[in-house]
Amino acid sequence: MLKLIFKIFLFLWLSAVIIGAFLYAPLAKGLGEYTRVLYFHVPMAWITVVAFLMSAIFSIFYLWQKNLIFDHYAVVSNQFGILFSLLATITGSIWAKVSWGAFWNWDPRETSIFILLLIYLAYFALRSAIELPDRRAALSAVYSLLAFVTVPFLIFIIPRVYSSLHPDPLINTEAKIQMDGRMLLVFMGALAGFSAFYLWMFTINKNIVQLRSQFEEKEF
């Protein structure tokens, strides 16, 4: 029952966010309709970071406790990480077409999300090259952690060192949020809504891998 309420609530919440993003929130000063992508692009990028962070945490747990279930969780987070980084890339690229004139121009931001995608595709390439489950889990956990320490360089340092045209309202150098009240409301609503959506999807997949590993144990 509680789950059903949660689902209906989430549906209404996300609908409200989508309607609010197009109708309620005012436009940023001097900018066109295309700025509304903000309410979708930034949550996607945010979830990408959360997914990869979770995957790194699960990798640490695996190396610590050697329980294969953590390896399965790390895989699930990485899959979502790839999905959401693709979504963030696509929404960002559409915005770039309208505002900079090209879908892709190797802006530091674009470079970094592209490398991020490469890292996590390499993660799955590594997994497919190892047969033994224990060894696969340990080596991919190590690779995942090794890759994770390069993420701050890609996301935070390289765009700071090399001038980027990417607007950065959320984590800017002055740590200030420069947004109108109504914009901020919709923005935070979108962030919370999509995060809850992500956690829900993650829980479903987590239950699937739990069930699957229980069945596999019974077979042996």
Binding site: T111, I115, L116, L118, I119, A122, A125, L126, A129, I130, E131, R135, L139, V142, Y143, L146, A147, T150, F153, L154, I158, V161
Partner: peptide
């Protein structure tokens, strides 16, 4: 480090470049 990882996997040669390229790309860019 990546060499240590791939030495335990199959298809070593191709995997090494695939795995190290994204990790070491910051060095290349900077």
């Amino acid at each position: 480090m990546v060499a240590a990882i791939i030495s335990k996997a199959s298809a070593k040669g191709a995997l090494f470049t695939v795995l190290s390229f994204p990790i070491l790309l910051p060095v290349l860019i900077i």
